[in-house]
């Protein structure tokens, strides 16, 4: 489903060039629950951004559903993300002035889905992530874990093929983090959505069905368990 082939990404930081990814290759199948792990600065975010079509390749190719990413223009990428990808961020990135409900439903609004269906789907997914009865609360009146649940609902509500989560538990205590991982795993099983999440926390790695270890911009191990 996703083919990462010999991907290179360099960043220019003034005079010097930082080689963030030095030829990474990876095949990801449908419905995988995959963790990209590695120490800080190893290139996890860079790799997720490239798969997520929000960053540009310097070499190699990424093919998603048979579609090469390097050939897409800005507009196509935007459309592609809108239709196929869900994102979960370390800092949740919710819109503070919107309620839990609105934070989720706007994803469907920009897909021009009819109002009635938006309501149904939003309410259902909020219930599934355990936020029933809190639909009208704003993020500032919810805990970190609850906010990340909104983010999971926001990522899943459009039934995307792939959800990308960059260190989704890094801002949470370990107990809450585990709950979030369990929820993600449950959703992965239920909807057969491909989850790719990064982490540098060994507890989190334990939840992965497949663990890809990055070090210094290169894959050093890739194991399924």
């Amino acid at each position: 489903m996703i083919q990462v082939q010999n991907v290179i990404r360099n960043y220019k930081a003034g005079e010097t060039v930082v080689k963030a990814l030095k030829g990474v290759s990876l095949d990801i199948g449908d419905g995988e629950f995959l963790s990209i792990a590695g120490p800080s600065g190893s290139g996890k975010t860079t790799l997720l951004n490239l798969i997520g079509c929000i960053d540009a390749l310097d070499g190699g190719e990424i093919t998603i559903e048979g579609q090469p990413v390097s050939g897409m223009d800005k507009k196509t990428k935007t459309e592609f993300r809108r239709n196929n990808l869900g994102f979960i961020f370390q800092t949740y990135n919710l819109i503070p002035v919107l309620s839990a409900y609105e934070n989720v439903s706007f994803v469907l609004s920009i897909l021009n889905i009819p109002e009635k269906e938006i309501e149904e789907r939003t309410m259902r997914i909020l219930k599934e992530v355990g936020l029933e009865g809190m639909e009208h609360r704003r993020p500032d009146r919810l805990s970190g874990g609850q906010q990340q649940r909104i983010a999971i609902a926001r990522a899943l509500v459009k039934n995307p093929k792939i959800v990308l989560a960059d260190e989704p538990t890094a801002n949470l205590d370990s107990k809450t983090g585990e709950e979030i991982l369990k929820l993600m795993k449950e959703m992965n099983r239920k909807y057969h959505t491909t989850f790719i999440f990064s982490t540098h926390d060994s507890m989190v790695m334990d939840y992965a069905a497949r663990l890809v270890l990055l070090h210094d911009g290169q894959i050093v191990s890739d194991e399924r368990r």
């Binding site: 935007t78 800092t91 920009i110």
Partner: peptide
């Protein structure tokens, strides 16, 4: 800016 980045990542176009 971060909120903007989120919305753009989720597929909101420049015009919106």
């Amino acid at each position: 800016t971060r909120e903007l980045g989120m919305m753009r990542a989720l597929g909101m176009d420049d015009r919106s």
